[in-house]
Design a protein around this nucleic acid. Structure first.
Lengths: 212, 212
DNA sequence: GTCTATATTCAGATAGAC
DNA sequence: GTCTATCTGAATATAGAC
């Protein structure tokens, strides 16, 4: 029980309230976390009353789970979706710089995504399944797509493309966690381009890409 | 106000209750997070009553801040403290493998440290200063010590030791976050030794360490 | 100094009116 | 279907006894 629209396919307008609730829930959960978010405030942010909220979602945990699943699907491969056609064309060092810049910009720009990652990590003890959903929908696609690219460029002479991709993505994500999420730019100062250049230099060794 | 022992240096036994409270607070906060931890349960875990708790710490936020500062200092450079004398001796690839193993073992073994990092990340929106304390006491010392080692080994030909150190540590920390904290070993399967070997191979290039 | 007992506030969840 | 009003439990913090 919960959604009755599923029993009435002709009535598509019935999802408005559910959408509004999820939107309100997103605002509240992403800012205050799971425990500190009250159903009262979610209802207010969504412009509905509490009983309406509870008619769409069984309880707080169901609402939270539904929200995380929705966000994880929205963010699924969001980084590669827009310019996938020409992103992976050109010199490997340029491709990797473009890719790293895209990832950092995406994480910095969409503060929503940063808040989402913080929320999932913070609640990974309470909701381990939601943590796994995020990894499956965000981290894994990124790493696999990069690994796929590495495989397509044998001149890089990477003996283990998959692991190299995980190192590349992991270093970038950790960089964002330190600088943005933990707000420690002044404690561990590091310019973005300097970090990216060094990361690329570790993978694209000069001997592997001889000047043409 | 709060601690009166500071006004009475001769009375060293007075810290017992405060220690017990911090120990109880550690158990509760590390498991349940900030908001879900009740002062009632902290008092029970510490074996004291709530008024006693409030006589030592002004409020919940003060207790949490004191606990985090204490934990951050305890964990300060804990990874390097024990075997610092011989850890950095020998072939660079062996040193780095030893170091990486030490870091992973330390993060996996001390589940307390993992829970601490999860707690700080989860609360970094609410308590940004505590996040900065953790970075200053844990991440920064690790990176700086490794950077120092890189500088001492010019044969590695690292043009930017500091950034390379941050990449090395960042990749390791991210590996632990994915595998242990987010419990996604089966989603992004990766053997520890395989990861370490590839990470080291990126830094210790064959041409940089010629066979002797 | 430490406890029992309590004041106060607020959360999740629901009954019943319309 | 949606809302007003409310129940129930639990949390922070404290007053007052010993």
């Amino acid at each position: 029980m919960g959604q009755k629209k599923d029993n009435d396919p002709n009535h598509k307008g019935a999802t408005d309230k559910a959408q509004a609730i999820l939107k309100g829930a997103m605002q509240e959960f992403l800012v205050h976390g799971y425990v500190a978010t009250s159903m009262e405030r979610v209802a207010a942010a969504a412009g509905v009353s509490k009983p309406t909220l509870y008619s769409h979602f069984q309880d707080k945990e169901s609402l939270f789970t539904a929200l995380v699943q929705r966000l994880a699907q929205e963010k699924h491969g969001a980084i590669f979706h827009s310019p996938d056609s020409y992103l992976f064309q050109g010199e490997p060092s340029l491709v990797l710089r473009h890719l790293a810049t895209l990832i950092l910009d995406h994480l910095k720009g969409e503060s929503q995504l940063l808040a989402f990652i913080r929320l999932i990590i913070g609640e990974s003890g309470r909701f381990p399944e939601l943590a796994r959903i995020m990894v499956r929908n965000i981290d894994k696609p990124m790493i696999e797509r990069l690994s796929q690219y590495f495989v397509s460029r044998p001149e890089l002479q990477l003996s283990d493309p998959k692991t190299t991709a995980q190192i590349f993505i992991g270093a970038l994500v950790h960089f964002v966690i330190i600088q943005e999420m933990l707000q420690s730019q002044d404690i561990l100062p590091m310019e973005r381009d300097r970090f990216i250049n060094n990361l690329i230099a570790l993978i694209v060794v000069d001997s592997a890409v001889p000047p043409k």
